[in-house]
Design a protein around this nucleic acid. Structure first.
Length: 333
DNA sequence: AAACCAAGCAACCGCCTTGCC
DNA sequence: TGGCAAGGCGGTTGCTTGGTT
């Protein structure tokens, strides 16, 4: 059985997993008397537990109307839909799913649904398309510093790794390679994202940026061509890992008004406390700082500015941070 | 076969809300 | 109206399990 090892608190009350005997004692007592005062219940039922533990055990596990087993697809959709309106109000969500407890829904969300949405490119908090690649780009210097620390002489990236099978690349034991791969993926994603409101992911990298990128990375024509092909190839991880929203069954079912995806119903903040003006200002400032680099780069995209710009400075920073410029050439090659 | 690792989930913790005096 | 007790809630912890190396 999963759970914690049995122990006692300072009052000698038992903690940890419940035994079948304890379960039966609790069931017997509540069926005969109702739960009444939870604090008084343990002694009346002959249990060496605190009232809170009894209440939790009953409401989350022993209640006769509890529905066990896997969540159905309908339940999944309902949870996602309710979460988009209610946020992490698990008890409120649970009231719409008969037989499911808030704890069970919370666990299911954290272990399954959150990942599922992330894989689809949907932010599980806002229920909108993810834009956190901007954050990643903004954090490139830090990520690069981390990556640089992890790159040893024997751990240099395979120059032809982008041609390798993705599953072979994604060895879980090689976090460094994955980080590098994701880094490049996000760079390409940002560079290939145009500023239109289209809900489908663009397939092509703007030749202008490919050229500009190649200049900063001091790539030769062959490497530049690889970069462009990489961005245009449907089978590259960069594009294949991002679902096309308009064609994805699950997304279209969970978000029936997909055309209004950018204006999904108002989301209850994860924290119920409204931020004070100074708090929100501070948070906003932090955000601005964090995405500043990415914003600058995207502004460059809008105006096709020349190379003596912030983009230049940003990329130069990146290259300066990296141990060797050949690293990036290798990655792209 | 053993060691390692990540996922899953029951249970706990601490804060918040509610109701009563 | 303030204080207290009890219940409710969301986040976190830590054990088990199953898969991988």
């Amino acid at each position: 059985m999963m759970g914690r090892s049995s122990s006692s608190d300072e009052n000698g009350l038992k903690k940890g997993p419940w035994t079948p005997e304890e379960d039966q004692m609790l069931i017997d007592y509540i069926e005969r008397n109702g739960h009444g005062s939870w604090r008084a219940l343990p002694s009346l039922a002959g249990l060496n537990r605190c009232g809170k533990s009894c209440r939790l055990r009953w409401t989350n596990y022993l209640r006769p109307d509890i529905k066990r087993g896997n969540f159905t697809e309908d339940e999944e959709k309902l949870i996602i839909h309710l979460h988009s309106h209610l946020g992490n109000k698990w008890s409120a969500i649970a009231t719409h799913l008969p037989g499911r407890t808030d704890n069970e829904i919370k666990n299911f969300w954290n272990t399954h649904l959150k990942k599922k949405l992330l894989q689809m490119g949907i932010d599980p908090v806002t229920h909108q398309r993810r834009t956190d690649h901007l954050d990643i780009l903004a954090n490139l210097p830090q990520l690069l510093a981390i990556a640089a620390n992890n790159i040893g002489a024997t751990n240099l990236i395979n120059p032809s790794f982008l041609d390798m099978n993705l599953s072979a690349l994604m060895s879980p034991s090689d976090a460094t390679q994955i980080a590098k791969f994701q880094l490049l993926q996000n760079i390409l994603q940002v560079l290939s994202t145009n500023t239109s409101t289209s809900t489908t992911m663009p397939q092509n990298i703007d030749p202008f940026y490919a050229v500009q990128l190649s200049e900063y990375l001091k790539l030769n024509p062959h490497q530049l061509q690889n970069l462009q092909e990489l961005a245009m190839n449907d089978q590259t991880p960069s594009s294949s890992s991002i679902p096309s929203f308009s064609n994805h069954d699950f997304v279209s079912q969970s978000y029936p008004n997909l055309e209004d995806f950018e204006s999904v119903p108002p989301l209850v903040p994860a924290s119920p406390e409204p931020l004070s003006q100074s708090q929100s200002q501070s948070q906003s400032n932090q955000m601005n700082i964090q995405v500043g680099n990415a914003t600058n780069i995207l502004k460059q995209s809008d105006h096709h500015l020349n190379s003596s710009t912030t983009l230049d400075a940003n990329w130069q920073d990146l290259m300066d941070d990296e141990a060797s410029g050949s690293y990036w050439k290798d990655v792209i090659e």
